[in-house]
Amino acid sequence: EFTLRAYLNGRIDLSQAEAVAEIVAGGNAFQLQAAQKLLAGKLSQTAAQIRQEILDVLSLIEAGLDFSTEDITFVGPDEATEKIERITEALETLLAGGIRYEEMIDLPSVGLAGTSNAGKSSLLNALLGQERSIVSDQKATTRDVLCGVLELEKCRCTLFDCAGLKRAEADSALLDELAAQAAAEAINAANMVLLCVDMAKTDYSEDIEISRTIGAGRIALVATKADLLDEQDSKRKQTQLAELFDSQLVVTSTRSGRGIGSLRALIDSRIVSLTAGAAEAADRIAVNQRHRKIVAETIEHLDDAAGQMALGNDEIAAMFLRSAYEVLAGLEKEDIDEAVLDRIFSNFCIGK
C-alpha cells in the first residue's frame, strides 16, 4: 500500500516500485544488490540516458526534414544509422547484464543423498537448526521428501532430505518403491547433492554405486557420524573415503557439531557460483519481465528506424524513433490502467 502511494504521488517511478518487491524476493546477496540498484534508480538513469540519445538522433533527422529545402545537412544516413545501432547495442547490453527477477523466485535446491541410516536426517536438522526430520536408528525412517529453507551468509537455498537411495528388491513393498522413486526424482532435480557416507561402517559398495548414479559434478562428499570413531580411526577412514570416491570430503558429527560450519560455507560458495559470479553480479541490475518486454520492443523500433534510414526514408525512420522513445519511457512511468497496476502490486506481501 505504501509503495503504491509513493508511486502514485510521484515519489518513486514504476521500476523503483517493482524493486521493493524484488528485494523481498531476492534469494542471495548479489540478487539483493541488483534489486537495490534498481530501487536506487539505476535502471531509470540508464533508460533516461538512452532516451536522450534517441532524442538527439530524432532531432537531427527532423531538423533535416523541416529544412529540406535548405542546403544544410544535419545528419547523413550513414551517421544516423551508426548512432541508432550504438543505442541498440546499449539496450542489448542492458538485457544481457540484468538478473532476471523471475529467476529469483525459485530458490536453488540442495539434496541429502545416501543409503538408509547414513545420518541424512540428523544432518538436515543440524544444518537447519531445527527438528525438521525424524531421527531414528531404524532404517528407512524417512519416506517423504522433507525440506526447509537454509539461510546462509550470502544466499538462501532449499535443503531437502528423502528416503535412502538403494537397489530395488523383488519383495519391496509398494510404499518403499514409491519412496525410492520420489527420492530419485528429487535428487535428480537438485542443483547440488550432499552425499552422506557413514564413517562407522565398512562396506561402501552401495555408496559408490549411488555416487555414480548421481554424477560427480553436483556431489559434495560428507562423512557422517565422526563421533563414533577415535582420532586415529577417523584419520584412517578419511583417507580411505577420499581414495574410494576420488573426492575431498567434509567430516561431520551432528552430536558434537563438528564440520557443520564448514559444510554450510561449502554450500554457500557452491550456490553463489551457480546463481551468479561475485565479480559479475556486483554491477548487475534486477530486470523483470515487464522491463525486458519494453526494452525488446524499443530495440525492434530502433531496428526498423535503422532500416528505413538505410533506404533513405527519413520521415518513416523518425516515426520509429519517436515510437522507441515513447516505449522506453514506460520503464519509469507510463499511461497504465488500474488493472495493470493491480497486477504489478499484487506481487507485494501485505505490510511490505
Rank of each mutant, 00 (worst) to 15 (best):
A226P: 06
T213Q: 05
L241A: 09
L221W: 12
S262K: 12
K235N: 13
S253L: 13
E243A: 11
Q232V: 08
Q248F: 05
S256P: 01
L249Q: 13
G217A: 09
L249E: 03
S247H: 05
K225M: 11
A242S: 04
S262Y: 08
Q240A: 11
R218L: 03
T239D: 06
L221Y: 08
L241I: 13
T213H: 08
R218E: 08
R258K: 02
A216I: 08
D246E: 10
T252M: 14
T252L: 04
D230V: 01
G259Q: 05
K237G: 12
R236P: 02
G215F: 01
A226Q: 11
G215V: 11
D230M: 06
I214P: 02
S253G: 07
G259V: 06
K225H: 11
D227E: 15
V251Q: 08
R255A: 12
Q238N: 10
L263H: 02
A220D: 07
K225S: 07
G261Q: 08
D230H: 09
D233Y: 00
L221T: 05
L228P: 04
A220Q: 04
I260P: 00
I214S: 03
D233P: 04
G259P: 14
A242N: 09
R236M: 13
G259C: 12
L228A: 11
S253N: 13
A223S: 02
R218V: 11
T254F: 07
A223W: 01
E231G: 00
I260N: 15
G261K: 12
F245A: 02
G257Q: 06
T224N: 07
A242F: 01
V222F: 06
T224I: 03
S247V: 04
A242L: 01
Q238R: 05
L244N: 12
V251L: 06
K225W: 08
L244G: 05
L221P: 03
I260M: 04
E243P: 00
D230Q: 11
S256N: 13
G257M: 08
L244Y: 04
D246F: 00
L241K: 03
Q240I: 13
S256F: 04
L221A: 04
V251N: 02
E243M: 12
A216S: 15
G259W: 03
R255Q: 15
I260E: 15
T213S: 13
T224E: 12
Q232D: 13
K235W: 02
T254K: 04
I214A: 06
T239K: 09
I219W: 05
K225L: 04
R255M: 14
G257C: 05
K225C: 05
D230K: 01
L228Y: 03
S234G: 14
T252P: 00
T239P: 00
G215H: 06
T224R: 06
L263A: 08
T254G: 10
D246A: 03
K237I: 14
I260H: 04
G259E: 07
V251H: 14
S256D: 12
S253R: 05
G259Y: 14
L221E: 07
E231Y: 10
Q240H: 14
Q232S: 09
L244F: 07
A223K: 00
T224F: 01
A220F: 03
T239E: 15
G259T: 10
S234D: 12
Q240K: 14
S247E: 08
L228R: 10
I219Q: 09
G257L: 14
T254P: 02
L229K: 00
L228I: 02
G261R: 10
